[in-house]
Amino acid sequence: MRIGVVTFPGSLDEVDAARAVRLAGGEAVALWHGDDDLHGVDAVVLPGGFSYGDYLRCGAIARFAPVMRSVIRWAGPPESASPGLPVLGICNGFQVLCESHLLPGALVRNDHRKFVCRDQRLRIERNNTRWTSRYGDGEEIVVPLKNGEGGFVADVPTLDHLESEGRVVARYLGGNPNGSYRDIAGVSNATGTVVGLMPHPEHAVEEGFGPDRDAAGRLTNTDGLRFFTSVLEGVLTA
């Protein structure tokens, strides 16, 4: 399976995302922001970092990049009942997905106004998405989190809609790191093909390089890898 990883001007984590795809057993295909050709990939990852200086608002200019025209077209409308191209947006990629209106809500500056960088405990609350099917229902994981503008916000009817439809994919545990409404760390579109996530699963995919959870101090955590193995499973039967 071929997974495209987009590079925007200012992307930081596309190399780690491509590495995560390869470690999961997929083929990583480099996509360029200025090229609207998706080169026939089966899914797309929008990586973390920044894009176009994040001028105006994070992801606001990236949303109009040629590559995003194609991503938006193939992903389909967020409330559609027919599944489109699977897309995972991580951190800045999540911001781009919200600005693209492929996902509801928006990401704003952390409520405490400081950049946050830490290992973050999460609960996977929706495992019938294309990106989380390899997690248990309600499974708790730890992956790195690093953001300055990671506060997920939306109006109350939108939040209620997301909750009632079971579209909160992941929620923060052990303290809200950025002021996200209802501790929301990630959401999905109606069919679970498009997922946005503020924390970084691609930084927890290989032993020796992830968050530290081992009693002996060894870095054994690979909790993030299953985001990338999940999408390889193909069409969901859920």
């Binding site: 952390n110 106004r113 506060g151 916000v153 109006d155 109350v156 002021g179």
Partner: peptide
């Protein structure tokens, strides 16, 4: 302007 219901951390600072 930010909508009234959206937290404005810069304004708060």
């Amino acid at each position: 302007m930010f909508k009234p219901e959206i937290l404005d951390p810069q304004g708060k600072a």
